[in-house]
Protein backbone atom coordinates (compact mmCIF):
# COMPACT_ATOMS: atom_id res chain seq x y z
CA UNK A 1 0.00 0.00 0.00
CA UNK A 2 0.95 3.62 -0.23
CA UNK A 3 2.78 3.41 -3.55
CA UNK A 4 -0.07 4.21 -5.88
CA UNK A 5 0.72 5.99 -9.10
CA UNK A 6 -2.46 7.76 -10.05
CA UNK A 7 -0.63 9.63 -12.79
CA UNK A 8 -1.04 6.56 -14.95
CA UNK A 9 -4.67 7.54 -15.54
CA UNK A 10 -3.64 10.92 -16.87
CA UNK A 11 -0.90 9.45 -19.06
CA UNK A 12 -3.36 7.02 -20.64
CA UNK A 13 -6.26 9.46 -20.83
CA UNK A 14 -6.48 9.30 -24.62
CA UNK A 15 -6.75 5.49 -24.67
CA UNK A 16 -9.24 5.50 -21.80
CA UNK A 17 -11.34 8.15 -23.51
CA UNK A 18 -11.34 6.14 -26.75
CA UNK A 19 -12.45 3.13 -24.74
CA UNK A 20 -15.25 5.12 -23.15
CA UNK A 21 -16.39 6.29 -26.59
CA UNK A 22 -16.48 2.69 -27.79
CA UNK A 23 -18.56 1.74 -24.74
CA UNK A 24 -20.96 4.63 -25.30
CA UNK A 25 -21.29 3.86 -28.99
CA UNK A 26 -22.05 0.23 -28.28
CA UNK A 27 -24.51 1.31 -25.61
CA UNK A 28 -26.37 3.73 -27.87
CA UNK A 29 -26.66 1.32 -30.80
CA UNK A 30 -27.67 -1.59 -28.58
CA UNK A 31 -30.27 0.53 -26.79
CA UNK A 32 -31.88 1.80 -29.99
CA UNK A 33 -31.78 -1.60 -31.66
CA UNK A 34 -32.89 -3.39 -28.52
CA UNK A 35 -35.94 -1.20 -28.00
CA UNK A 36 -36.90 -1.30 -31.68
CA UNK A 37 -36.61 -5.06 -32.16
CA UNK A 38 -37.82 -5.65 -28.62
CA UNK A 39 -41.05 -3.86 -29.47
CA UNK A 40 -41.52 -5.98 -32.58
CA UNK A 41 -40.73 -9.14 -30.62
CA UNK A 42 -43.22 -8.22 -27.91
CA UNK A 43 -45.92 -7.59 -30.49
CA UNK A 44 -45.06 -10.89 -32.17
CA UNK A 45 -45.30 -12.75 -28.86
CA UNK A 46 -48.74 -11.29 -28.23
CA UNK A 47 -49.95 -12.02 -31.74
CA UNK A 48 -52.88 -14.40 -32.10
CA UNK A 49 -51.05 -16.15 -34.90
CA UNK A 50 -49.13 -19.13 -33.52
CA UNK A 51 -46.73 -19.10 -36.47
CA UNK A 52 -45.59 -15.67 -35.26
CA UNK A 53 -45.87 -15.94 -31.48
CA UNK A 54 -44.19 -19.31 -30.97
CA UNK A 55 -40.89 -18.55 -32.74
CA UNK A 56 -40.74 -15.15 -31.01
CA UNK A 57 -41.27 -16.75 -27.62
CA UNK A 58 -38.68 -19.40 -28.46
CA UNK A 59 -36.05 -16.81 -29.35
CA UNK A 60 -36.70 -14.70 -26.27
CA UNK A 61 -36.63 -17.67 -23.90
CA UNK A 62 -33.51 -19.08 -25.52
CA UNK A 63 -31.59 -15.82 -25.17
CA UNK A 64 -32.78 -15.36 -21.61
CA UNK A 65 -31.73 -18.89 -20.64
CA UNK A 66 -28.07 -18.50 -21.57
CA UNK A 67 -25.40 -16.24 -20.07
CA UNK A 68 -24.77 -12.92 -21.78
CA UNK A 69 -21.18 -14.00 -22.40
CA UNK A 70 -22.37 -17.20 -24.07
CA UNK A 71 -24.62 -15.10 -26.33
CA UNK A 72 -21.68 -12.85 -27.17
CA UNK A 73 -19.61 -15.91 -28.10
CA UNK A 74 -22.45 -17.23 -30.23
CA UNK A 75 -22.94 -14.07 -32.25
CA UNK A 76 -19.21 -13.47 -32.46
CA UNK A 77 -19.07 -16.87 -34.13
CA UNK A 78 -22.28 -16.64 -36.20
CA UNK A 79 -22.28 -13.06 -37.47
CA UNK A 80 -19.23 -13.31 -39.77
CA UNK A 81 -20.49 -16.68 -41.01
CA UNK A 82 -23.94 -15.37 -41.86
CA UNK A 83 -22.65 -12.14 -43.36
CA UNK A 84 -20.23 -13.96 -45.65
CA UNK A 85 -23.00 -16.31 -46.71
CA UNK A 86 -25.24 -13.44 -47.80
CA UNK A 87 -22.66 -11.07 -49.22
CA UNK A 88 -20.11 -13.51 -50.49
CA UNK A 89 -17.50 -11.46 -48.65
CA UNK A 90 -14.90 -13.00 -46.44
CA UNK A 91 -16.07 -13.45 -42.87
CA UNK A 92 -13.09 -11.44 -41.69
CA UNK A 93 -14.65 -8.37 -43.27
CA UNK A 94 -16.92 -8.24 -40.22
CA UNK A 95 -14.97 -6.67 -37.41
CA UNK A 96 -15.30 -7.58 -33.75
CA UNK A 97 -17.22 -4.35 -33.11
CA UNK A 98 -19.93 -5.30 -35.60
CA UNK A 99 -20.21 -8.77 -34.10
CA UNK A 100 -20.47 -7.29 -30.63
CA UNK A 101 -23.15 -4.86 -31.83
CA UNK A 102 -25.18 -7.71 -33.30
CA UNK A 103 -24.83 -9.74 -30.10
CA UNK A 104 -25.91 -6.81 -27.94
CA UNK A 105 -28.89 -5.91 -30.12
CA UNK A 106 -30.07 -9.52 -30.09
CA UNK A 107 -29.71 -9.97 -26.34
CA UNK A 108 -31.15 -6.58 -25.46
CA UNK A 109 -34.11 -7.01 -27.80
CA UNK A 110 -34.96 -10.21 -25.93
CA UNK A 111 -34.69 -8.44 -22.56
CA UNK A 112 -36.58 -5.35 -23.73
CA UNK A 113 -39.30 -7.44 -25.34
CA UNK A 114 -40.17 -8.84 -21.92
CA UNK A 115 -40.43 -5.35 -20.44
CA UNK A 116 -42.48 -4.06 -23.36
CA UNK A 117 -44.72 -7.12 -23.37
CA UNK A 118 -45.54 -6.49 -19.72
CA UNK A 119 -46.18 -2.85 -20.63
CA UNK A 120 -48.57 -3.77 -23.42
CA UNK A 121 -50.36 -6.23 -21.18
CA UNK A 122 -50.74 -3.60 -18.47
CA UNK A 123 -53.01 -1.62 -20.80
CA UNK A 124 -56.64 -2.65 -20.19
CA UNK A 125 -58.01 -4.68 -23.09
CA UNK A 126 -60.78 -2.15 -23.58
CA UNK A 127 -58.26 0.35 -24.91
CA UNK A 128 -57.32 -1.49 -28.09
CA UNK A 129 -61.01 -2.49 -28.22
CA UNK A 130 -62.04 1.16 -28.30
CA UNK A 131 -59.38 1.91 -30.90
CA UNK A 132 -60.64 -0.90 -33.13
CA UNK A 133 -64.21 0.27 -32.61
CA UNK A 134 -63.18 3.64 -34.06
CA UNK A 135 -61.98 1.82 -37.14
CA UNK A 136 -58.24 1.98 -36.43
CA UNK A 137 -56.33 -1.03 -37.74
CA UNK A 138 -53.84 -3.11 -35.72
CA UNK A 139 -50.78 -0.94 -36.43
CA UNK A 140 -52.68 2.30 -35.82
CA UNK A 141 -54.17 1.06 -32.57
CA UNK A 142 -50.71 -0.09 -31.41
CA UNK A 143 -48.99 3.08 -32.58
CA UNK A 144 -51.47 5.69 -31.35
CA UNK A 145 -53.18 4.06 -28.40
CA UNK A 146 -51.43 1.05 -26.87
CA UNK A 147 -47.70 1.69 -27.25
CA UNK A 148 -47.70 5.35 -26.14
CA UNK A 149 -49.41 4.31 -22.91
CA UNK A 150 -47.26 1.20 -22.51
CA UNK A 151 -44.02 3.15 -22.98
CA UNK A 152 -45.18 5.76 -20.53
CA UNK A 153 -45.89 3.10 -17.92
CA UNK A 154 -42.66 1.30 -18.67
CA UNK A 155 -40.36 4.28 -18.93
CA UNK A 156 -38.72 3.87 -15.50
CA UNK A 157 -38.16 0.13 -16.02
CA UNK A 158 -36.79 0.72 -19.50
CA UNK A 159 -34.37 3.35 -18.24
CA UNK A 160 -33.28 1.09 -15.40
CA UNK A 161 -32.62 -1.60 -17.98
CA UNK A 162 -30.62 0.97 -19.95
CA UNK A 163 -28.36 1.50 -16.93
CA UNK A 164 -27.87 -2.28 -16.70
CA UNK A 165 -27.16 -2.37 -20.43
CA UNK A 166 -24.50 0.28 -20.02
CA UNK A 167 -22.84 -1.84 -17.34
CA UNK A 168 -23.16 -4.93 -19.52
CA UNK A 169 -21.17 -3.30 -22.31
CA UNK A 170 -18.10 -4.13 -20.20
CA UNK A 171 -18.68 -7.79 -21.10
CA UNK A 172 -17.22 -7.23 -24.57
CA UNK A 173 -13.94 -7.58 -22.72
CA UNK A 174 -14.31 -11.32 -23.38
CA UNK A 175 -13.88 -10.80 -27.11
CA UNK A 176 -10.93 -8.48 -26.60
CA UNK A 177 -12.76 -5.40 -27.82
CA UNK A 178 -11.24 -2.23 -26.40
CA UNK A 179 -14.13 -0.69 -24.55
CA UNK A 180 -13.58 1.38 -21.41
CA UNK A 181 -12.69 -1.66 -19.29
CA UNK A 182 -10.65 -3.19 -22.11
CA UNK A 183 -8.65 0.02 -22.53
CA UNK A 184 -7.94 0.15 -18.80
CA UNK A 185 -6.95 -3.49 -18.84
CA UNK A 186 -4.55 -2.92 -21.73
CA UNK A 187 -3.00 0.10 -20.03
CA UNK A 188 -2.72 -1.99 -16.87
CA UNK A 189 -0.79 -4.71 -18.68
CA UNK A 190 1.59 -2.16 -20.19
CA UNK A 191 2.29 -0.35 -16.92
CA UNK A 192 1.61 -2.92 -14.24
CA UNK A 193 -0.77 -0.41 -12.64
CA UNK A 194 -3.95 -2.47 -12.75
CA UNK A 195 -4.96 -1.51 -9.22
CA UNK A 196 -5.19 2.19 -10.01
CA UNK A 197 -6.78 1.63 -13.40
CA UNK A 198 -9.45 -0.84 -12.28
CA UNK A 199 -10.34 1.34 -9.30
CA UNK A 200 -10.65 4.27 -11.67
CA UNK A 201 -12.94 2.26 -13.96
CA UNK A 202 -15.08 1.24 -10.99
CA UNK A 203 -15.39 4.82 -9.75
CA UNK A 204 -16.32 6.16 -13.19
CA UNK A 205 -18.96 3.48 -13.71
CA UNK A 206 -20.30 4.09 -10.23
CA UNK A 207 -20.63 7.83 -10.70
CA UNK A 208 -22.32 7.51 -14.09
CA UNK A 209 -24.69 4.71 -13.09
CA UNK A 210 -25.51 6.14 -9.69
CA UNK A 211 -26.35 9.52 -11.19
CA UNK A 212 -28.43 7.87 -13.90
CA UNK A 213 -30.39 5.69 -11.50
CA UNK A 214 -31.02 8.70 -9.23
CA UNK A 215 -32.39 10.55 -12.25
CA UNK A 216 -34.64 7.60 -13.07
CA UNK A 217 -35.95 7.59 -9.50
CA UNK A 218 -36.70 11.30 -9.74
CA UNK A 219 -38.53 10.77 -13.01
CA UNK A 220 -40.49 7.91 -11.49
CA UNK A 221 -41.61 10.12 -8.61
CA UNK A 222 -42.67 12.84 -11.05
CA UNK A 223 -44.65 10.37 -13.16
CA UNK A 224 -46.30 8.98 -10.05
CA UNK A 225 -47.54 12.45 -9.14
CA UNK A 226 -48.69 13.21 -12.66
CA UNK A 227 -51.14 10.35 -12.88
Amino acid sequence: MGEFDWGVIWRYRAALWDGMLTSLQLFAIALAGGVFFGTLLAMARLARWKAVSVPAAGFVNLIRAIPFIMAIFWFYFLTPMIVSKFTGQQGEAVGPFTSAVVAFIMVESAYYSEIIRAGIQSIPRGQPGAAYALGLNYWQSMGYVVLPQAFRNMLPVMLTQAVILFQDTSLVYVVALKDFLGAASKAGQLTGRIVELYLFVAVVFFILCFAASRAVKGLQARLAVAR
Binding site: Q167, V195, L199, F205, F210, S213
Partner: peptide, 21 residues
Amino acid sequence: ELFRNVPLLVQMFLWYFVMPE
Protein backbone atom coordinates in the same frame (compact mmCIF):
# COMPACT_ATOMS: atom_id res chain seq x y z
CA GLU B 1 -26.29 1.46 -4.50
CA LEU B 2 -22.61 0.57 -4.30
CA PHE B 3 -22.95 -2.97 -5.61
CA ARG B 4 -25.62 -2.22 -8.17
CA ASN B 5 -23.88 0.62 -9.92
CA VAL B 6 -20.57 -1.04 -10.77
CA PRO B 7 -20.53 -3.65 -13.55
CA LEU B 8 -20.22 -7.22 -12.32
CA LEU B 9 -17.15 -7.82 -14.46
CA VAL B 10 -15.40 -4.81 -12.94
CA GLN B 11 -16.29 -6.10 -9.48
CA MET B 12 -14.81 -9.45 -10.43
CA PHE B 13 -11.53 -7.73 -11.30
CA LEU B 14 -11.65 -5.69 -8.10
CA TRP B 15 -11.91 -8.81 -5.95
CA TYR B 16 -9.38 -10.84 -7.89
CA PHE B 17 -6.75 -8.34 -9.02
CA VAL B 18 -7.16 -5.29 -6.83
CA MET B 19 -8.20 -6.56 -3.41
CA PRO B 20 -4.99 -8.59 -2.71
CA GLU B 21 -2.93 -5.48 -3.50
